[in-house]
Structure formats: structure tokens, C-alpha cells
């Protein structure tokens, strides 16, 4: 309850700072629009040439794009800005103001994960949800409770996987402030725009079990389309749990290192 209240306070204060620059809202709108437009146009162009690629047709690919944009919006809403403010360029570790954060009587991981919000990312969130609903309508499949449930679960797993990946790479900054590897995750995340099955075998394996950007979007989309096997669902959930615990452990190790070696 107290932590929810704190999130509310952080959200309020971040929004206040951002709303001061009204022009940014229109810029954001332009970027979000471009993002959605290029995403949809890409599918139009591709499926204009071929009807089905390796089992994925246009509506299924649209649903996956919706999941991709949804995850991207959530990352932009708070995960990205919060972690960037600690581990990014000019972040707190870089400038030394992380000392203050470390002195706050609140759980560190919680604090650094939810501190900064970008209210304009709600525009992306709305667009992504709209696209997802449109895709569901064109898909025309009968959605069962089970499908919806597994979709919700896997979507949640996707968000946690993305968070865990960003947290793990942020934690590396404790070892060397010039590791800006969160960028690499941002770059690799673009691969999640399309079903992981479209990539060559070696890359598919890497994107599923090593850098799990494939799991983040393909699995929820499969849950919606109804092609997700129960085994894969369980594996995804287990993998997500492991990734979350692993990233948390790495972050704690980083903290320990920071407090024993910083000067």
C-alpha cells in the first residue's frame, strides 16, 4: 500500500515536470504516430507480396505488432526512464548522485525501477491497445477464457522479461560506468517486432533462450492466435521467473560492489 502510494507520488511529480514542456507532447504524438504507421505499413508491404510466412498471416502478425508496441510503451512509460536515470548516460551512477538514492529508506530495487515516468508514453499505450483490439477483430477467432488467461500471463511474462533484461544490463554499470549496454537491449528489442519463427534457426535459439526478446512478443501473440502449446507456456513462465531472480541477484551484487569500491 505504501509502495503504491509512492508510485503515485513519483508518477505525479514526473508528469508535472514533463507537462511543463507542452511542445514535447506534439513531438511525442508525431513520433508515436510514425512508429505505428511504419509498423503497420511494413506488414502491408510484406503481406502484399506473400500471403503467409511460415504460418503467420497478416492478422496474426498485426496482433504480434500490437504486443510489441504495448511492451515498448510500457518500457517507455517507466521501466526505461527509471533505469536510464540510474545507469544511463549522465545517470546517477555516472554523476555520483546515486549516493543519495542509496540513503533512502526504501527498497533499492523498487526505488530505481519506478521512480521516473513519462506520461506521454500513455499515447503509445493507447495506440498499441487499439491495434491489438483491431487485430483481434480481424483475426476472427473465438477467444476462450483459457486463451485470454494465457495471453495475460504471457504478456505479463513479456514485461517482466524485458524489465529483467534491462535491470541486468543496468546492473553492469556498477562494474564499469561506461557499459551502456541498455542500448544493446533497446536495439535487440527491435527483433521482437516479428515472430521469432521467421529468423534462421541459430538466431531463433539465441532470441528465445539467450536474449529472450523472442519470448517477449512471440509467445503472447501465439497465445492469442491459439498456437501456443501448454509446455511452451510453462517453459516461458519458468524462464521468466529465473530471469527475474537472476537479474535481481545481479543487481544486488552490483550494489555490494558499489558500496565496497566507490570512492
Amino acid at each position: 500500500m505504501r509502495y503504491l502510494k509512492l508510485i503515485g507520488a513519483f508518477f505525479k511529480i514526473s508528469s508535472q515536470a514533463e507537462l511543463a514542456y507542452r511542445v514535447n507532447f506534439f513531438i511525442r504524438l508525431l513520433h508515436s504516430g510514425l512508429n505505428l504507421l511504419t509498423g503497420v505499413l511494413s506488414l502491408v508491404v510484406i503481406f502484399n507480396q506473400v500471403e503467409v510466412i511460415k504460418g503467420w498471416d497478416m492478422p496474426a502478425a498485426l496482433a504480434l505488432l500490437g504486443v510489441y508496441l504495448l511492451l515498448g510503451a510500457l518500457r517507455g512509460l517507466f521501466i526505461g526512464p527509471s533505469l536510464e536515470s540510474v545507469a544511463g548516460m549522465d545517470g546517477e551512477i555516472w554523476t555520483g548522485t546515486y549516493d543519495f538514492t542509496l540513503l533512502r529508506p526504501v527498497d533499492q530495487q523498487f526505488l530505481i525501477s519506478v521512480r521516473h515516468w513519462r506520461i506521454f508514453a500513455l499515447v503509445d499505450l493507447a495506440m498499441a491497445l487499439g491495434l491489438l483490439i483491431y487485430a483481434l477483430v480481424t483475426l476472427g477467432t473465438q477467444l476462450t477464457i483459457g486463451m485470454l488467461l494465457s495471453f495475460t500471463l504471457t504478456l505479463l511474462a513479456g514485461v517482466i522479461l524485458l524489465y529483467a533484461a534491462l535491470l541486468a544490463f543496468s546492473a553492469l554499470v556498477f562494474w564499469n560506468p561506461s557499459f551502456l549496454f541498455t542500448w544493446v537491449i533497446n536495439d535487440l528489442f527491435q527483433l521482437a517486432r516479428y515472430p521469432v519463427g521467421l529468423y534462421p534457426g541459430w538466431l531463433r535459439l539465441v532470441l528465445t533462450w539467450v536474449i529472450p526478446v523472442g519470448l517477449m512478443t512471440t509467445i503472447p501473440a501465439q497465445a492469442l492466435v491459439g498456437t501456443l502449446s501448454p509446455l511452451m507456456l510453462l517453459l516461458t513462465l519458468a524462464f521468466t521467473l529465473a530471469a527475474f531472480l537472476g537479474a535481481t541477484w545481479l543487481f544486488r551484487q552490483g550494489l555490494k560492489r558499489y558500496t565496497s569500491a566507490s570512492s
Binding site: I46, Q49, I53, V184, N186, D187, Q190, Y194, L198, L203
Partner: peptide
């Protein structure tokens, strides 16, 4: 590396489409 990736994505997509 970041600029390379989007192009790689479409390389793979079209390769898959032309398989």
C-alpha cells in the same frame, strides 16, 4: 550495431518470405 539491426530484421523477413 543499432543501425544495423533493423536492416538485418528485414533481411531475415524477406529471406523467410522468399524461402
Amino acid at each position: 550495431f543499432g543501425w544495423m539491426l533493423p536492416l538485418l530484421v528485414y533481411l531475415f523477413i524477406w529471406s523467410a518470405a522468399a524461402s
